[in-house]
């Protein structure tokens, strides 16, 4: 089997502002293989963006490391790293410079690497806007004259221009109208097939993640609590939180919003399971002991005392 495209191992990150500390990520490990889409699902504030920024090198993790290797298994140097990995942000209003024309915004990654002349850049820009189905007339316009969908297409075009192998999509559709969302998702799917791309697809919207991802990691309060292929996960959720996510997403009960807004800070250093106080199925040990993320099946990991034991028994 080919080595994974990118490996995140044991990433932890704590934000410190004065005396307050926010533990955004704790011991997160993740691999993405070539041509694969890994979905990351989690409530708002659970650390998804932090994870994407660390992956992109925009943020320094406290511990752990991000490794990207080329075909020969060598670690990528900085320049190649920037060309291999690329990103689309959640907010198409904020991700395009309001004082830059669409053309310049899309061409920016090429301009930064400086390896291209004007002609090549233009050619490449026309290629990618064709791929994202954006009208060439928009190239001279400024972002504020574009619709949300057009802007996000432009952002995707920018992500594509340096011909990357991995694109990190941080909630790329959550700021868009539902009808536009579908178009963008389909576009992303098509692009993946055409260009043999890998995606890390981040969202708080489970159906959207399910639609696009081959594999899904469930993030809760900075920790991955369950991971598995989307089909497996759809068929059976092991962690009570995953169960709750699925049931609220596909029709049944809604998540308790008030709990979502709580911030995890260092003052409530919990000894036990981080989900303990919300867990409908908690055991007595949950309050005193934190479950580790344990492999329960091939390509299936979960951090819970409940089912994993059964699973290991059957093994």
């Amino acid at each position: 089997m080919e080595p994974p495209l990118i490996t995140l191992s044991n990433i932890s990150k704590t934000y410190r502002e004065g005396k307050t500390e926010v533990k955004a990520l704790e011991n997160v490990s993740l691999v993405v293989n070539k041509g694969e889409t890994v979905g990351i699902i989690g409530e708002s504030g659970c650390g998804k963006t932090t994870l994407s920024q660390i992956t992109l090198g925009l943020l320094k993790q406290d511990t752990g490391h991000v490794r990207m290797i080329d075909e020969n298994g060598k670690k990528l140097d900085e320049k190649l790293f920037y060309q291999t990995i690329s990103s689309v942000f959640q907010d198409p209003w904020g991700s395009l410079n309001p004082r830059m024309s669409i053309f310049n915004s899309i061409a920016e990654p090429l301009v930064i690497t400086r390896n291209f002349d004007k002609h090549e850049i233009k050619k490449r820009v026309y290629q990618v806007i064709d791929q994202v189905q954006l009208n060439t007339e928009l190239l001279d316009k400024y972002p504020h004259t574009l619709s949300g969908g057009q802007r996000q297409r432009a952002a995707i075009a920018r992500a594509l221009i340096s011909d990357p192998t991995l694109i990190i999509l941080d909630e790329p559709t959550s700021a868009l109208d539902v009808s536009v969302q579908a178009q963008i998702l389909n576009l992303l799917k098509d692009l993946q097939e055409q260009n043999n791309l890998s995606y890390i697809f981040i969202s708080h919207d489970l159906p959207v993640v399910m639609y696009l991802s081959h594999r899904i990691a469930v993030l809760y309060r900075g920790q991955i609590i369950e991971e598995g292929s989307s089909t497996d996960l759809m068929g059976q959720q092991i962690h009570p939180y995953t169960k709750q996510l699925f049931s609220s997403a596909f029709g049944k009960n809604k998540l308790d919003k008030a709990i979502l807004d709580e911030v995890l800070d260092s003052s409530d250093q919990k000894v036990g399971c981080i989900y303990e106080f919300r867990c409908p199925e908690k055991l007595t040990q949950c309050a005193n002991e934190a479950p580790n993320l344990i492999k329960v099946d091939s390509g299936r990991e979960v951090a819970c005392f409940l089912q994993p034991q059964k699973q290991t028994e059957t093994k």
């Binding site: 925009l58 991700s95 004082r99 930064i112 952002a155």
Partner: peptide
């Protein structure tokens, strides 16, 4: 901390590039 600045950094944009192209005009 605007997304377009983060994006530029994620493409490898230098401080000078970011100041001149993004921060200054805005």
């Amino acid at each position: 901390n605007q997304d377009y600045v983060l994006a530029s950094r994620s493409f490898g944009g230098s401080s000078t590039h970011i100041i001149l192209k993004h921060i200054l005009p805005n």
